[in-house]
């Protein structure tokens, strides 16, 4: 009787979860569990990271000082380039507005911690929600490239599908002359498949795959992965390229959501 009751409750909650997810929201149970566990887990994670950083500083002082100097000089040169890029993007947006097009999206970044990760369903939970301006469909990025796409949101948290998820399909592109575009999807934690219209062009190992210029929500030119190999075509006219993701999710703690 008890088991039946629990199974009925589980079924009901699973239905609520599905309908909430389809509406781009996190269900009530998810919100409650995150509410009671998130503050403690974030503090615990920060304490552990702080401790690890402290001991690494103690034992590698000279290396960290040299690295710090190198990063400062890199930051100085990056600032110079960034000013030029900002100016050009501003001009581009002005031109787009003049001809009646929307401004390019993804310029505002929302910082968030990854507070849960499930490798089985290729899904992460983030510490930013609708209160910070997060919406379903927005891109999630780390320094190495695209992490995934927001799927459901509540006031303080959001959940995203990783690029390694077979459910998620993202417009992707390989640069060059001419650039080629297609759709990329996950086929395992460290393997993506990029499907595109076959052409005479060959794809070399190590070529960079980036987000497409044709997506309305995901900004263009964010690294997704690097080409590993080309598979024999399974459908006439469709080329399949195996890609390794640039982001190793188990090494990422903080991400940006592109608004």
């Amino acid at each position: 009787m008890l088991i039946m009751g629990l199974l009925v409750i589980a079924y009901g909650l699973a239905q609520l979860q599905s309908s909430a997810r389809n509406a781009g929201r996190i269900d009530f149970v998810g919100q409650t569990v995150l509410f009671i566990t998130k503050p403690a887990s974030i503090n615990l994670g920060n304490a552990l990271d702080g401790n690890a950083r402290f001991w690494s500083t103690v034992f590698k002082t000279a290396e960290i000082r040299a690295e710090n100097e190198r990063l400062k000089s890199l930051e100085a040169s990056w600032r110079q380039y960034q000013e030029a890029v900002d100016s050009l993007e501003s001009q581009l947006n002005n031109v787009r507005r003049t001809v009646g097009l929307n401004a390019v999206k993804g310029k505002v970044k929302i910082a968030a911690d990854i507070i849960a990760f499930d490798p089985v369903t290729s899904r992460i939970t983030l510490s930013a929600g609708s209160r910070q301006g997060v919406e379903p469909g927005q891109a999630v990025v780390a320094t190495a490239g695209l992490v995934g796409q927001i799927q459901s949101v509540d006031r303080n948290n959001s959940q995203a599908l990783l690029v390694s998820s077979p459910v998620l399909r993202i417009g992707a592109m390989i640069g060059g002359q001419p650039p080629v575009t297609g759709l990329i999807r996950g086929q395992g934690p460290r393997r993506l498949v990029f499907e595109l219209i076959e052409s005479s062009r060959t794809y070399n190992q190590g070529e960079l795959v980036v987000t497409s210029i044709h997506s309305e929500r995901t900004p263009p030119n964010i690294p997704i992965g690097i080409v590993l190999s080309q598979e024999p075509a399974q459908e006439y006219g469709i080329a399949r390229i195996v890609v390794a993701p640039t982001v190793e999710i188990s090494e990422v703690r903080e991400v940006f959501i592109l608004k």
Binding site: Q17, F117, S152
Partner: peptide
């Protein structure tokens, strides 16, 4: 609930 995975399977 924490990861937004299918509730019925986990339960």
């Amino acid at each position: 609930a924490m990861i937004g995975a299918n509730l019925a399977q986990y339960v």
